[in-house]
Computed example of a mutant assay.
Amino acid sequence: MNISVLGCGRWGSFHAWYADKIGHDVVLWGRPGSKNLAELRDRHANEYLQMPESVELSDDLSYAVERADIIIISIGAQQLRSFAGQLAELPIKNKTFVLCMKGLEIGTGKRLSVVMREEVGPEPDIAVWVGPGHVQDFLKGIPNCMILASDSDEVTARLVPIFHGPLIRFYYGKDLLGTEIGAAAKNVVGLAAGMLDGVHYGSLKGALMARGTKELSRLIDAMGGDAMTVYGLSHLGDYEATLFSPHSNNRRYGENLMLGKPSTKLAEGVYTAEALMALSKEYNVELPISRSVYEIVCCHKEPKAELERLFLRSEKEE
């Protein structure tokens, strides 16, 4: 199978490495002038992995798209709409796109598959690949479970055996809406977990996990998805990797914020918190954890006071 990976950051380079490892012919694309691509070309490695020589590196988007049967996209979620607009000008009618990002579009709150569909039209198949796992662990040979979902059972069933391998066991996602909302929102909960670590309130992570899943289940239900999806791999199943792992950019960002340290790695949860506020208003669903994170990271409220207000709210039924 010819697979092209668009985006050569941490996850993009991993997806290229993984697709090559399970036997596919892989092109890894980066933007012209990309520092990540330049590093890979220079030494066929980055800070995470050694890229096999069999993975072709390219900055030619037309070439990467035209030679692929399946196209994996791994870029910042807020870049997707403009990037998809570029893809729409290329011959993509019979391609299958797999979105390997977690986020919601700020300003609209739209899911990434919706953003993609609006830009590329009805023809190409679109799926999402989410779930727990860290590049650092996969490179050590530590396996994990992930999920593939689309709005077509046929597309999902076709993709799972293509990507299944000894490192990743894939499950079939039946609820694309819930899968995408859960995957995006767990990064917001990850920010909250890091904040708790930063003020040495780690014992509250249990409450954070319980209440985080509950508030997101209400949102998914109000949007027309399956409320139980949030308890699967896309959200609750990803909590260990997001709320506790030292590799989690979102958890680290929240902790650094409390400690007054700068963060250099992208924390998609910052944008997602803003997008969730739009959905909270649109669907009239209270999201107290997401709102507190939004107030801290976007409105610059005093973090410790906001966290204490969140967890010491007035008495109510669970």
Rank of each mutant, 00 (worst) to 15 (best):
R10F: 10
W11V: 12
S13F: 06
F14V: 11
A16L: 09
W17E: 04
W17S: 06
D20Q: 14
I22T: 14
D25G: 06
V26Q: 08
V26S: 12
V27I: 03
W29N: 02
R31T: 15
P32Q: 05
G33M: 06
G33Q: 00
K35F: 09
A38I: 11
E39P: 01
R41S: 02
R43M: 07
H44W: 13
Q50N: 13
E53R: 15
E56Q: 09
L57D: 01
S58H: 02
Y63M: 03
I70R: 08
I72D: 11
I73F: 10
Q78H: 08
R81F: 10
F83I: 02
L87Q: 08
A88V: 14
I92L: 02
I92Q: 05
N94Y: 13
N94M: 09
T96E: 04
L99I: 08
C100P: 01
K102A: 02
L104Q: 07
E105Y: 12
I106A: 02
L112D: 04
E119T: 12
G121M: 13
P122M: 01
P124G: 13
W129P: 05
W129G: 11
V130S: 09
H134S: 12
V135I: 05
K140L: 04
K140T: 01
K140W: 01
D151M: 10
S152L: 03
S152Y: 03
E154P: 10
E154T: 13
V155R: 06
L159I: 13
V160W: 03
F163L: 13
F163D: 04
H164L: 00
P166D: 14
L167S: 14
R169I: 00
Y171G: 06
D175K: 12
G178D: 07
I181T: 00
A184Y: 04
L191R: 08
A193F: 07
A193K: 03
D197S: 14
G198E: 08
V199H: 04
Y201R: 10
G202L: 03
L204I: 02
K205G: 09
G206K: 06
A207V: 11
M209H: 00
K214V: 09
K214N: 11
E215V: 05
S217L: 04
R218Y: 06
L219N: 08
A222L: 01
D226W: 00
A227N: 00
A227F: 06
V230H: 07
L233D: 07
H235F: 11
G237P: 12
E240A: 15
E240S: 09
A241D: 14
L243R: 08
S245C: 15
P246Y: 00
P246R: 03
H247E: 14
N249P: 12
N249F: 13
R252G: 02
N256S: 03
P262S: 11
S263Q: 09
T264I: 03
K265C: 09
E268H: 07
E274V: 05
S280R: 13
S280G: 11
K281Y: 03
V285P: 03
E286H: 15
E286W: 05
I289F: 14
S292E: 05
V293F: 00
H300G: 01
E302Y: 04
K304D: 00
E306F: 13
R309G: 06
L310Y: 04
L312Y: 15
S314A: 12
E315S: 12
